[in-house]
C-alpha cells in the first residue's frame, strides 16, 4: 500500500512539474483591508494587459470575492513571466457593519456588506490553502504592521514555503514608514511602492519576475 502511495505521489509530482512548466503561476495578492491590493492588481493588469481587475474604493472590504486576471505576461530584462493574478478580499479577524455606516451606507447595506466581507475572508483563506503558487503581500505603510492578521498570514505563507514578496504600499502618503514594515518582517525583502501613483513599479515588476518566474 505504501509502495503504491509513494509511486502515485512520484507520478503526481512529475506530472505536476510538467504542467507547471507550461501553466502560469497563480499569484495571490493578500493583505489586510484597505492596503491597496486591488489598486495594485489593477495597476499590474493595466500595465501589461490594458484591463482592470476590479473596482477600487476607500471603503474597506470593497473586494469581497476573489477576482482573477489570467495570463498577465510581464517582461523583464528580456525575459517573460506569465502569471495569473488573484486579487483577494482583505483579511481580518473582525468584521463589524458599523464601520461601514460612516460611508453613507444604510444599516441593511452595511450588514450585507459585512456578511459578504466575512465570506470574502473565508474565500481568501481557502485560496491560500488550495490555489496559490506565490503571494504578493500588500501592506499600508502608514499603518502599524505588527498585527495578528499580518503575523498569522505571513506565518502561514512561510509554513507553505510559498514565495512571498512584501510590498509597502502608499508611499505617496506623508505618514508612510517603509522601515517599520521591513523591521516587522526582516526575513523578507520589503519593496516600497505607491500603486495609486505608479511609483517604483519597475522594481516591483523586477521582483515579481525574480520571485515568481
Amino acid at each position: 500500500m505504501g509502495l503504491l502511495t509513494n509511486l502515485k505521489d512520484s507520478i503526481s509530482r512529475v506530472t505536476d512539474g510538467l504542467f507547471a512548466a507550461d501553466e502560469p503561476k497563480r499569484i495571490g495578492i493578500y493583505g489586510p483591508p484597505n492596503a491597496g491590493k486591488t489598486t495594485l492588481a489593477n495597476r499590474i493588469a493595466r500595465d501589461w494587459t490594458g484591463d482592470a481587475v476590479g473596482p477600487e474604493s476607500h471603503i474597506p472590504h470593497e473586494t469581497r470575492r476573489a477576482r482573477r486576471k489570467e495570463n498577465v505576461e510581464i517582461e523583464r530584462n528580456g525575459r517573460k513571466v506569465t502569471i495569473d493574478i488573484v486579487d483577494t478580499p482583505g483579511v481580518t479577524t473582525k468584521v463589524d457593519y458599523k464601520e461601514f455606516l460612516d460611508h453613507d451606507m444604510d444599516k441593511d447595506d452595511a450588514v450585507r456588506r459585512s456578511r459578504e466581507a466575512t465570506e470574502g475572508v473565508a474565500e481568501a483563506m481557502h485560496w491560500l490553502r488550495e490555489d496559490v503558487d506565490g503571494v504578493i503581500y500588500v501592506l499600508d505603510s502608514t499603518t502599524d504592521p505588527f498585527t495578528q492578521v499580518n503575523t498569522m498570514l505571513i506565518g502561514i505563507i512561510e509554513s507553505q514555503d510559498l514565495p512571498a514578496l512584501i510590498l509597502a504600499n502608499k508611499t505617496d502618503l506623508s505618514g508612510s514608514d517603509v522601515q517599520q514594515i521591513a523591521n516587522a518582517f526582516p526575513q523578507h525583502e520589503t519593496i516600497p511602492l505607491s500603486a495609486l501613483e505608479g511609483e517604483n513599479m519597475d522594481e516591483v515588476y523586477t521582483k515579481i519576475a525574480e520571485y515568481f518566474g
Partner: peptide
C-alpha cells in the same frame, strides 16, 4: 447580525 469574528487558522485549516 452584521458582526463577525473570524479564526483565520481555522478557516485556513478547514
Amino acid at each position: 447580525p452584521g458582526k463577525y469574528e473570524l479564526n483565520l487558522m481555522e478557516l485556513y485549516d478547514r
